[in-house]
Simulated scan of single mutants.
Amino acid sequence: MNTSLDGNALDGSALDDTARDHLVIERVPITHPDAQSLIEAVQAEYVARYGGQDESPVDPADFEDPLGQFFVGYLDGAPVATGAWRRSSVKALRAEVTAEIKRMYVVPAAQRRGLARRMLAHLETTAAAAGIEALVLETGMKQPEAIALYLSSGYEPIPGFGYYCGSDLSRCFGRRITSAG
């Protein structure tokens, strides 16, 4: 299934003080060894949930300025989460400038601590700073925790787009991150 969303997104529970004090989100290239290790882990999760890896096209250049940004979250120095956004041609929510969330993932040992919610907020902040008006994303029906995270974070269903458009297993969501006008 599409790695645009977290195969292991958290349920949105509050981040405890210990995790908040130690989570550090750093911008890195998608080719960074920590990013690649976490991408391999989420691909293994997709194999377990869907029977195959995500096959949607991803160009590493999409996550470099001015097209997008890629981040790794570190907990006590260990890479535990990823999240990224890339500019998109998808028109949704009356926004002229959109970006697509990609590669959301939190390792199992760090789940249910609010880290996915914190990464999502970071993506929203950095995308808004880059002039993005709305974020869009795709996730799969076999990722109910990801769907719950996005819905509880103010994302709303939007028409399908991209590689998995029309798939019965795919769900797309969007959220305005800046006000119109």
Rank of each mutant, 00 (worst) to 15 (best):
Y155K: 09
A81V: 11
A129M: 04
R113P: 00
Y46K: 08
A109N: 02
P79R: 13
T3I: 12
E133R: 01
V136H: 09
G181A: 08
T31C: 01
A81T: 15
T125Y: 00
A148K: 13
A84G: 13
P144Q: 10
S152F: 00
G166I: 13
A128R: 14
D59T: 13
R113G: 00
K102W: 04
R87A: 12
Q43T: 03
A95D: 04
A99F: 01
P79L: 11
Q143H: 06
P159C: 06
I39N: 13
R86Y: 03
A35W: 02
L151C: 07
E133T: 09
F71T: 11
I30W: 03
G162I: 09
A148Q: 13
T126W: 01
R113C: 00
Q43W: 09
R49P: 04
T126Y: 00
E45N: 10
E96M: 02
G83M: 07
Y164K: 04
Q69C: 13
G140F: 12
D17H: 03
R94E: 12
A81R: 08
Q53D: 14
T3E: 11
D21F: 00
G181C: 05
D62V: 06
G12C: 09
D62F: 07
T139F: 02
V28P: 01
L149F: 06
L115Q: 04
I25L: 05
Q69G: 12
T126M: 09
G12Q: 10
L151A: 14
T178N: 09
D17T: 11
T126C: 04
